[in-house]
Amino acid sequence: MNESQVTPMSAPVNPGTALVTARERALAVLGGEPDDQTLGRYLHGIPGVDAVGLEQRAAALGTRSIKTTSKRWALDKIISLIDLTTLEGADTPGKVRSLVAKAMNPDPADPTVPRVAAVCVYGDMVPFAIEALGAAHGDPDDGLISVAAVATAFPSGRSSLEIKLADTAEAVAAGADEIDMVIDRGAFLAGRYGEVFDQIAAVKEACRRPDGTSASLKVILETGELVTYDNVRRASWLAILAGGDFIKTSTGKVAPAATLPVTLLMLEVVRDWHRLTGHRVGVKPAGGIRSSKDAIKYLVTVAETVGEEWLVPHLFRFGASSLLNDVLLQRQKMTSGHYSGADYVTID
């Protein structure tokens, strides 16, 4: 495996090669077909996680102190890595347009504020998001904004594969650049790893566009339902083996959502996968990250676990909504020298 097989999100790849290489990679790593037995042996052969030690390491990373120039850099970096999200039953085209406006111009009073990486919506909202983005729609690595759609019977994932694939294909057809799928936690917890693998691989296939390019696939593990760190680690490996471009903690609909220890653990898997294959996979903590202070802890954790090169939109995202305004408040404080207030940032 080498760097040429890296499939950065939204970047055009050779038609048809992404899935093939992902599968080949999995077969090479697993040493056999990705069925329940082979996957079970592999996933259960991964070293365990000591929860206390993991949480202590995360807490220690959380005590890093960021000051002045680093903090300014960190705040802008956080904004540029946000998937600004609305995932409500009450979502409307108007709500999505408002979200997009915020994404493009987070602080109307300060044009130096960078744009967020993406807006994240339900599949049926994709056309409205794209329309609202207009020329700003594109690859966040180029300073543009992607559209991410949750799919596969989000958030529970409880439907047939056909519906999940149709859900995915529809969003991709509508122009979604990124698909945030959920794994079948029931199948995972029941040990039907082959089924989870096959679904991820099939959704990945459904991410392909007629022109041969492919939407990037984020695989939501819903770590709050997997509960144990050992499960999170195994599910992370499984999602990566099956071809996920990103592994994502949570839907935001289950508590706990993203936590620093869980994110650290997923970053460790990504680091080990890179060590093993040379292939870089992204990580997206989602839900529950509301303050700049917390978000900076995540940046530190990324930088110290996989390196600063991971702090780019195609390798790290925050799934968040209220985080953005807190970052803006902090940013205003740094610019003006005094504390700002909630009425000085916009609600979307």
């Binding site: 890093r64 960021i66 680093s70 850099w73 970096k77 930088a303």
Partner: peptide
């Protein structure tokens, strides 16, 4: 700058 070169925080 490198993010990891945290500014001194004495």
């Amino acid at each position: 700058m490198s993010f990891l070169d945290y500014a001194p925080a004495p």
